[in-house]
Design a binder for these strands. Sequence first.
DNA 1: CAAAATTTTGACCGGTTGGACAAACGTTAG
DNA 2: CTAACGTTTGTCCAACCGGTCAAAATTTTG
Lengths: 208, 208
Amino acid sequence: MEGSPRRTRIQQEKRELILEAALEVFSANGFRGSTIDQIAEAAGMSKPNLLYYFRRKEDIHETLMQRLLDTWLAPLRELDDIGDPLTELRSYIRRKLEMARDFPRESRLFANEILQGAPRIMPMLEGELKTLVDEKANVVKGWMRAGKIARTDPWHLIFSIWATTQHYADFDVQVRAVLGPDRGGDGRFEDAARFLEQLFLEGLKPKE
Amino acid sequence: MEGSPRRTRIQQEKRELILEAALEVFSANGFRGSTIDQIAEAAGMSKPNLLYYFRRKEDIHETLMQRLLDTWLAPLRELDDIGDPLTELRSYIRRKLEMARDFPRESRLFANEILQGAPRIMPMLEGELKTLVDEKANVVKGWMRAGKIARTDPWHLIFSIWATTQHYADFDVQVRAVLGPDRGGDGRFEDAARFLEQLFLEGLKPKE
DNA sequence: CAAAATTTTGACCGGTTGGACAAACGTTAG
DNA sequence: CTAACGTTTGTCCAACCGGTCAAAATTTTG
């Protein structure tokens, strides 16, 4: 058994500072597109100083990734059997959209990793993530069997919630460019929330 | 007025070869993550030879990007007023999903560019793309006014179609990892098509 | 305070990268 | 055949990048 290494107060603080800076840089440029110098400058320290706290560039990325995954899956973990199905799904969509709004850098970091083939987190996708999604898909299946929601593919339903919500973080510049200066402001997340709620809960069929 | 530069037959062919190789490499590693050497090797030639056809790395990327945008927006251009609205939308969704299936590299190239803040194509997003989307959003608005489809935000509707379809190209490794070896095979696009059709045309409300 | 431990820095290194260039090679037209 | 033109290659370079190291500066501890 090995506990996490003992660290001084300074080490704790500086490591946080570096991780915050690295999140900024990695999420904007990807892993290979980012340099240690950039991260060091964003953290307000010299490169060798940074390397005193993280011995390799990859260590920073790995630490960032580990932390990310916990918070990233939290909304899905909260989805559970108790309560009204449609309400549960609406809450899940809202939580995911809030994450896209409040943690866009984390979303882009994740997107960058997946886009490049997920070389560093593949085992996690096939293990922890798959297990969690399978479990929640079965919950959704139960709702369908009980006639609480329409029958459809639960896995693709989850994918579509991921895709539509994360889009507002990952493709933010495109969303803003298309909406223009007037509609692309802070209100876009509320518009998106309203739209997604209707899409998932009602579809596009006209109401009689 | 300046026409496109005169080129010999060999130049035409070699340039195509390079662009094909560059698409492979750029879409997998991003712009900064790709090296001229990688592209040259994928194209079966030496680095200086490649640089004879494209003088700078950025020229390759730029050429690739310009071509991409035309084909990328083609499905949306086809969306028009004539014909049944729900059928039109279903066709658009299917075309976009087919593009994700048949041109995943193009999708990832585009996603990479947007993720990094779209530094090279920003003017196009604010110009050509915005104009096209605004135009099509108005078509959709007309359908809504006519009571042909439910009232909702046309812009966010288009975003959600982009997001859900491109997801199967951009996040392909994640989709496959979650679906597992049995369900993650070639059939996943048909499952996705069925699901998306239901989602957009019916929503999740249970049928009475 | 003084010794010990921690933190910061400047100088440096080997490998990679984008790109330049001239020489060699091949092709085509007179 | 040969001169002109187009293509390919080997060599080289300067900038950059990840990372090392020893020494200096600072903080902590007895």
